[in-house]
């Protein structure tokens, strides 16, 4: 009934290595894209449960309390061009221990409170009127 043949032939092991190397290569390209080819962003967008909560500049030092309903709170701090979560009422505290973010597209996610903090780039340098 059960196939007892254990698959550990040379062919299987070779396929394993090809498979693992392929996975790691994909991850490497992903990491290169994320960490090397991206510049720092200049704004921080906060969404709660998929809806935009607020947009803040990365260049100002602020402390923002994000109220997520049911008395839950995430305190977002922007300091020295980096954003991080100082405190949160979520049980796991994953967002609080996340390292500060500043690159375009980086994000801190608080799954229990459904808060997503993302660094974006907006063109604030562009002139309002071109004469």
């Amino acid at each position: 009934m059960i196939n007892m043949k254990i698959d550990s032939t040379k062919k299987h092991n070779r396929n394993d290595i090809i498979f693992i190397v392929a996975l790691l290569l994909i991850a490497t390209f992903g990491a290169l894209y994320l960490f090397v080819f991206r510049d720092g962003g200049n704004t921080v967008k906060v969404t709660v449960d998929g809806k935009t909560y607020g947009v803040y500049s990365l260049n100002e030092n602020i402390t923002e309390d994000i109220h997520t309903g049911n008395g839950n709170l995430n305190r977002l701090v922007i300091r020295d061009g980096k954003a991080y979560m100082e405190t949160a009422t979520c049980p796991d505290g994953i967002c609080v221990s996340h390292k500060p973010i500043f690159r375009d597209g980086e994000s801190i996610v608080c799954l229990p409170n459904k808060v997503v903090v993302t660094v974006t780039t907006t063109d604030t340098d562009s002139p309002d009127v071109v004469i």
């Binding site: 992903g30 994320l34 998929g50 597209g105 994000s107 996610v109 459904k114 997503v116 993302t118």
Partner: peptide
């Protein structure tokens, strides 16, 4: 659930 695609990181 979060309706965001910014989790590739």
């Amino acid at each position: 659930l979060l309706e965001t695609s910014e989790l590739f990181y």
